[in-house]
Amino acid sequence: MFSRARNLLISGVGAAAVVLGAAAPGIAAGDDTPLPSAVETFEYPGAAKILKERGIRLDSGDGHILLADCKVSADITVFTKKSDDVNQGKICFKVTGSGKKGYLSLDIPDVMAIAAGKYGAWASVGGPTGMVNVPKNDVKAVGEAAWGEPARLLALQV
């Protein structure tokens, strides 16, 4: 009797494996279709539209420094020579999260100064200084205003 029960159990498990195997979704043997990537690229959303409309190239970041409306939020303000836009050469950024950490890779030409609000910031600037520390509630001159040559803002970090 024991062997008969064991045989029934084994055959039941085998049948269940066949049914579940046939019903389980997956890739068929020999299918060369690549799986979609789940890797985050950290590309800035809407970057092409912002570049076309405002001339600001936003490359990538961690989502904690975002382009903002200067009338609403200005945790970090970048002052440029460009004065023909609605913000008269000001480009504002909002710091999200706790404000303890944030990064944004970008490219803004003809930068004159960078101001930090309640969060201090580091700016990577093309020019003789490279990195510029902007303490909270302070403004640092860069580019023509500081060393007589145009500067490009390449990254912001909180």
Rank of each mutant, 00 (worst) to 15 (best):
A29H: 10
P34Q: 11
A16C: 13
A28Y: 07
A23W: 05
G26V: 14
A15Y: 04
E40P: 05
T33W: 03
A16H: 05
P34N: 10
A22F: 03
A38W: 04
E40V: 11
A38D: 13
G21L: 07
G21M: 07
V19L: 09
T33N: 06
E40R: 05
P34C: 10
G21P: 03
A16M: 14
G30F: 03
G30I: 15
D32T: 12
E43D: 13
S37G: 05
A28H: 10
T41K: 06
A23F: 00
A29I: 15
A15M: 13
E43V: 12
A23K: 05
P25E: 12
P36D: 10
A28Q: 14
P36Q: 07
A17T: 11
V19C: 04
G30T: 15
S37A: 09
I27G: 03
A24W: 03
A29R: 11
L35F: 08
A23D: 10
I27E: 11
D31S: 08
V19H: 02
E40G: 03
V18Q: 04
A23E: 11
I27Q: 10
A38T: 14
L35Y: 06
F42S: 14
A29W: 09
P25Q: 09
A23V: 12
A24H: 03
A38E: 13
A16Y: 06
G26H: 03
D32W: 01
P34S: 09
P36F: 00
L35I: 15
A15P: 07
L20C: 07
S37E: 14
L20A: 07
S37Y: 02
L35S: 13
A22T: 12
G14F: 01
E40S: 04
D32C: 04
D31W: 01
V39T: 10
G14R: 02
G30C: 12
T33R: 09
L35A: 14
P36T: 06
L35G: 10
D31E: 13
A16G: 09
A16L: 15
P25H: 01
A24I: 12
E43I: 11
A15T: 14
G30H: 06
L35W: 08
V18C: 06
P25W: 00
A38Y: 05
T41P: 03
P25A: 09
A28L: 15
T41L: 12
V18G: 01
E40Q: 08
E40A: 06
A15R: 05
A16V: 15
A28G: 13
A17W: 03
A22P: 01
I27S: 05
E40T: 09
T33G: 03
A28T: 15
A38R: 08
V19Q: 00
